[in-house]
Measured scan of single mutants.
Amino acid sequence: HAATELTPEQAAALKPYDRIVITGRFNAIGDAVSAVSRRADEEGAASFYVVDTSEFGNSGNWRVVADVYKA
């Protein structure tokens, strides 16, 4: 099962156990969220919340930071 994305309210009520950072070329924010979901799932997380997204220069590469939560 894939890790689910939390709302800001849900994330605020929970304590993350880790923070992950992924970088890559994403065509849309949805693609980045899917990549975070896969990584969170690999780490055994039940859910995640994207904290920050930023573009690296003009290369089209993105850096996505997310907190991950157990259950």
Score class of each variant (00 low, 15 high):
24 G>A: 06
51 V>C: 05
46 A>C: 14
44 G>F: 04
39 R>K: 12
65 V>P: 00
21 V>G: 00
38 R>D: 05
59 S>G: 12
10 Q>C: 13
70 K>H: 13
40 A>S: 03
26 F>C: 05
59 S>Q: 10
22 I>Q: 00
32 A>R: 04
61 N>W: 15
23 T>C: 14
57 G>P: 08
59 S>N: 13
39 R>W: 11
37 S>H: 08
24 G>T: 04
26 F>I: 02
48 F>C: 05
65 V>E: 06
51 V>L: 06
35 A>D: 03
16 P>K: 03
35 A>W: 04
11 A>T: 03
62 W>I: 10
22 I>T: 01
44 G>D: 04
58 N>A: 13
68 V>Q: 00
39 R>G: 01
13 A>H: 13
71 A>S: 12
21 V>T: 09
4 T>Q: 12
55 E>H: 10
11 A>F: 02
67 D>S: 03
70 K>I: 10
34 S>F: 07
29 I>P: 10
31 D>I: 10
39 R>D: 02
52 D>W: 13
26 F>S: 02
16 P>G: 02
41 D>V: 15
47 S>W: 15
55 E>S: 09
44 G>I: 04
57 G>F: 07
56 F>N: 08
28 A>F: 09
7 T>A: 07
25 R>W: 13
21 V>K: 02
19 R>H: 03
15 K>I: 14
43 E>A: 14
37 S>C: 09
49 Y>S: 04
71 A>F: 12
54 S>F: 14
64 V>N: 01
13 A>R: 14
29 I>R: 13
33 V>T: 07
37 S>W: 04
37 S>T: 07
26 F>P: 00
68 V>P: 01
54 S>P: 03
45 A>D: 02
37 S>E: 06
71 A>D: 14
39 R>N: 04
62 W>K: 04
44 G>K: 05
5 E>A: 10
40 A>M: 04
28 A>D: 15
5 E>H: 10
15 K>Q: 12
6 L>Y: 02
48 F>T: 00
39 R>T: 06
27 N>Q: 11
21 V>A: 05
67 D>R: 02
41 D>F: 15
56 F>P: 07
34 S>A: 15
50 V>H: 01
2 A>R: 14
35 A>S: 05
16 P>Q: 03
57 G>V: 07
42 E>I: 10
5 E>F: 06
55 E>N: 11
11 A>L: 03
29 I>T: 06
64 V>R: 00
70 K>C: 13
19 R>G: 00
57 G>I: 06
4 T>E: 09
66 A>Q: 00
55 E>K: 10
22 I>H: 01
29 I>Y: 14
68 V>F: 15
58 N>H: 11
13 A>M: 13
30 G>T: 13
34 S>K: 14
45 A>G: 05
62 W>M: 10
36 V>G: 00
20 I>K: 00
65 V>Y: 05
59 S>K: 11
62 W>R: 03
52 D>T: 11
62 W>L: 07
35 A>G: 03
44 G>H: 06
32 A>I: 14
19 R>W: 06
45 A>Q: 02
47 S>K: 05
69 Y>R: 00
8 P>E: 12
69 Y>C: 03
31 D>C: 06
52 D>G: 09
15 K>H: 10
8 P>L: 12
38 R>K: 13
33 V>Q: 05
35 A>F: 05
60 G>A: 05
70 K>F: 12
3 A>M: 07
50 V>I: 15
46 A>H: 15
63 R>H: 08
58 N>D: 14
23 T>V: 13
14 L>E: 06
24 G>H: 02
71 A>E: 14
46 A>R: 08
70 K>Q: 09
43 E>M: 15
15 K>Y: 08
65 V>Q: 03
64 V>K: 00
13 A>N: 12
9 E>R: 09
35 A>K: 05
67 D>E: 09
37 S>K: 15
